[in-house]
Design a protein around this nucleic acid. Sequence first.
DNA 1: CGGGTCTCTGTGATAAAGTCACTGATATCC
DNA 2: GGATATCAGTGACTTTATCACAGAGACCCG
Lengths: 213, 213
Amino acid sequence: MQMTPNEFVKLFPAFRGSDGSLIGDLLSSAGFRSVPAGAHLYSEGDACSAIAFVISGDIRVYKTGQTGREITLYEIGPGETCILNASCILAGQSYPANAVTLSDVEMITIPSGIFRRLVGEDERMRSFVFSLLSERLADVMALVEEVAFGRMDMRLNEYLVEKSDHGRLETTHQKIANDLGTSREVVSRLLKDFERQGKVKVSRNAVDIVDMR
Amino acid sequence: MQMTPNEFVKLFPAFRGSDGSLIGDLLSSAGFRSVPAGAHLYSEGDACSAIAFVISGDIRVYKTGQTGREITLYEIGPGETCILNASCILAGQSYPANAVTLSDVEMITIPSGIFRRLVGEDERMRSFVFSLLSERLADVMALVEEVAFGRMDMRLNEYLVEKSDHGRLETTHQKIANDLGTSREVVSRLLKDFERQGKVKVSRNAVDIVDMR
DNA sequence: CGGGTCTCTGTGATAAAGTCACTGATATCC
DNA sequence: GGATATCAGTGACTTTATCACAGAGACCCG
């Protein structure tokens, strides 16, 4: 599959109005990559060689503890880059987290050398990368606050509201726990409480929101 | 006080070998600022207008919860910039955290416009800022993991080892709690346990490490 | 169809951590 | 030398996490 500059700008509006060559350079040196849902993209400690611009699908970036518990740091969607790639490439570090696809994902990959050059030459590219990196930093800082000070019932409540689609969320308690950084039992118990309070309806592989205010 | 390019490069070796004009530009437009210990530099939500390069002293960047508990995200020392400034300037956000000086701090401040231009023009400046930003992101991600999965006794143990100077740490239980994101009572109790185990000696305003392995 | 095997969920007991409400102990300041 | 402020200790209780199971539903396959 090939992408036109027009399609690219539609997805990545930060590049609108770029002086001609940038997007051309970017697309001509880009590779296209299609990854199935559930694929493991990289692990903590891996080195990285290319940067990915996500066209479609979602990616989950998470940390793991020794006990096996997980916590989601943030998700990457269409119109974003996997900024950890950028961060690794530009700072020469290895990945500080893990990433997995949540759905089938299509992305454009750009070799790190080309990417480095583009960041140097183009103000828009620079600004795009800085903004995304800054945003992630702010996101993760907010997560620290939530984890350190937030109560689990509140966090679960917000999670259900945010993640549900038309009042329904199809997932398992284990997956919710993995996003929130807690254990399955805790999620099960809290959902049961919510159900007793008439806020949700719990069934196998799904939670239906009744009234969460 | 005025700083020579030589002194600057000694503190910020990432700029060694910069093509002449960069450091000159930077220093000629820089302001010098001296701040006493304990001063509040900025709060969550503030806008920012200049970037600071720290010459001497340490700055603590932290988050606060509604209950009044605090947690330190990271500290900034000599030879580093307050990267949140950069991130705000380049991404147009407001501060996502609070900052306070831990000691008397001297720093060079550079107006955001000049800074923007330098990042655009100079490869070394760009690389310096990216590296620091990436490093902070990795730091804060590691903190999420610690807070979400780590045990308090382990965290306190590591903290004491890292922060102590010649086996002694002069601080209050409250300050330790503020760094770790827990409450004073928890720190007091854990320290008491450590003392019973013969690992430390606790006294008012100080902890002496006996044997922490 | 029926039995075996997964995956998902529920629950009790216990341990770790945070909260609340105090008390006591040590400095510090007129 | 007391008044005041700061710092630390403690019991009781709540919230979370962990461990060890037990069922319940889905799915496969002869």
